[in-house]
């Protein structure tokens, strides 16, 4: 007995109002981006692709775009690496309670607001009052963490700190799913725990790499709160979302919308295959 169409629609409408607003917003971006709507031209005349030509010839956007992609690449590779390292280390302990406590501990930065993260790290990177005080005591050089181009690399490090625990969680979830009998027979064969980890557990957790990569890339594409709360709209740490925001606050709406469309296109390449793949899995699981 299937649900009646009337019931189906009634149950679905509230959620769809919100979901469709998001799509409506995306479409409205397309409309604005095809005009020259700004503080100078509030009349919204159709200009075709002019806004995109202007966007891609703007050095500030080019920088922001390249920086965001680089951030994504660095966060994906280093985030996966650190997450895998943490997960492998946590996996070495047998007690489930200890494992859970450690996982939660490394995940806590994810439960903090990125503004809070930004404020603390802004001070930890301070050349006179931050970690440099500690580093110089051990004879290391005084690093200007937030000076000029250095700021980008420092913030990348902080973003790894924020998200590595989440990656470790994804890996551990896969590790626990690995067939126990595979591990037990390897123990009987006298394999060391490092061999078991690298030869059995990690190769059986490929799915975690895919998922972690997708999420880290999405986190990097959305990067705003962290750089904004550390250095505001600084040209050295400007990301695409920050570019959208800066064009919005300076009332160049058509450029803000055009840059937003670039974000939509880039994230669609990541999101759509993942959503299709994920749903297939969940749908099949439900039938």
């Amino acid at each position: 007995m299937t649900m009646s169409l009337k019931g189906f629609i009634v149950f679905l409408v509230p959620t769809m109002i919100f979901a469709l607003f998001l799509y409506y917003g995306i479409l409205w971006n397309v409309v604005i981006a095809s005009t020259d709507y700004s503080i100078l031209n509030p009349r919204m005349e159709f200009k075709g692709l002019k806004s995109f030509r202007e966007l891609f010839s703007d050095p500030a956007f080019q920088d922001a775009f390249k920086r965001t992609l680089l951030w994504a690449g660095l966060l994906v590779s280093a985030g996966n690496l650190v997450g895998l390292l943490l997960a492998s280390a946590i996996f070495q302990f047998e007690k489930p309670r200890l494992r859970n406590t450690l996982t939660t501990f490394f995940l806590y930065p994810f439960s903090l607001s990125l503004v809070v993260v930004g404020i603390v790290w802004r001070w930890l990177y301070d050349p006179f009052k931050g970690i440099d005080v500690l580093l110089t005591k051990f004879g290391m050089p005084n690093i200007q963490w937030l000076e000029g181009g250095n700021a980008f690399w420092s913030l990348v490090l902080t973003s790894i700190w924020v998200y590595a625990g989440f990656v470790a969680l994804l890996y551990l979830a896969m590790f626990y799913n690995v067939d126990r009998s595979l591990i037990e027979s390897a123990i009987v064969d006298g394999a060391s725990s490092i061999t078991i980890l690298t030869r059995i557990v990690i190769p059986n957790s490929k799915q975690a790499v895919i998922i972690a990569t997708i999420f880290l890339a999405l986190f990097a594409i959305q990067m705003f709160d962290l750089p904004y709360s550390v250095l505001f709209l600084n040209p050295f740490t400007m990301t695409v979302v920050m570019y959208v925001y800066s064009k919005f606050t300076s009332l160049y709406f058509y450029l803000a919308s055009a840059a937003a469309i670039v974000i939509i296109v880039v994230s669609a390449f990541i999101v759509i295959p993942y959503a299709v793949y994920g749903l297939k899995k969940w749908l099949l699981a439900g039938r």
């Binding site: 959620t15 979901a19 607003f21 998001l22 799509y23 409506y24 917003g25 995306i26 409205w28 971006n29 604005i32 999405l218 594409i221 959305q222 705003f224 979302v241 959208v244 925001y245 919005f248 709406f253 803000a256 919308s257 937003a260 469309i261 974000i263 939509i264 994230s267 669609a268 990541i270 999101v271 759509i272 993942y274 959503a275 994920g278 749903l279």
Partner: peptide, 15 residues
């Protein structure tokens, strides 16, 4: 619905 969950919400700023 799933796609709208994963698309960065920042993109609908102006609208």
């Amino acid at each position: 619905i799933a796609i709208s969950t994963y698309i960065p919400y920042h993109v609908i700023l102006v609208p």
